[in-house]
Design a binder for these strands. Structure first.
Lengths: 88, 88
DNA sequence: ACTTTAATGATCAAGAATGATATCGTCCTA
DNA sequence: TAGGACGATATCATTCTTGATCATTAAAGT
């Protein structure tokens, strides 16, 4: 499933045209991103929750040279499925 | 951020009332859930991707009795942030 | 339809998530 | 608006993801 599938779904279930449906999807995505950027937790009961936490992992790996690499720490988004998605 | 915040955002950016905005959000959520239930991958470029994988963890822990518990295996939803959310 | 550009896969080691359950805190439906 | 239902938390050992890079696959904008 890709973004366009969601747009088509809205188009089908509502009375909006493609452009309008797309703008709705974009609005939602922008809203979600903005919330996460602000370190806000997102909780959609019955679907899932997203939480921003700080990363502690401080290394990675270079495949070609086969050795470790130091990595700058940052943030991480923790995804947790809700009840409806727990036992799929 | 909770579901209602998204509804309000749609209400603000469009010309729809609360009920209409809510139904749009529900439509999208149902569509996403249905996709995951069918083991389909979801990929929204610039936002994130969701993939269903099989669980291999086969144990847990009883806090009160402080001992291990056998767990039935199942599925798991893997969440991967897209480029816009990689360095938030 | 075509092009652009993001996502995936592979690799390894250490840090992190998973999983059951009861209680507390909070979303959201009636 | 209020209570009912769902989510967060803590616990520990094992499984799993993270992280950089580049080629390959594919999303999505034109």
């Amino acid at each position: 499933m890709i973004k366009n599938d969601i747009v088509l779904e809205i188009e089908k279930k509502s009375e909006f045209n493609r452009a309008k449906s797309l703008s709705i999807v974009e609005t939602i995505l922008a809203s979600l991103k903005e919330s996460l950027v602000k370190n806000e937790k997102i909780e959609i009961r019955g679907f899932a929750s997203f939480k921003v936490v700080s990363k502690k992992t401080g290394y990675g790996r270079d495949i070609r040279r086969k050795k470790q690499i130091k990595i700058k720490k940052g943030k991480r988004i923790k995804f947790k499925p809700g009840q409806d998605l727990k036992n799929i």
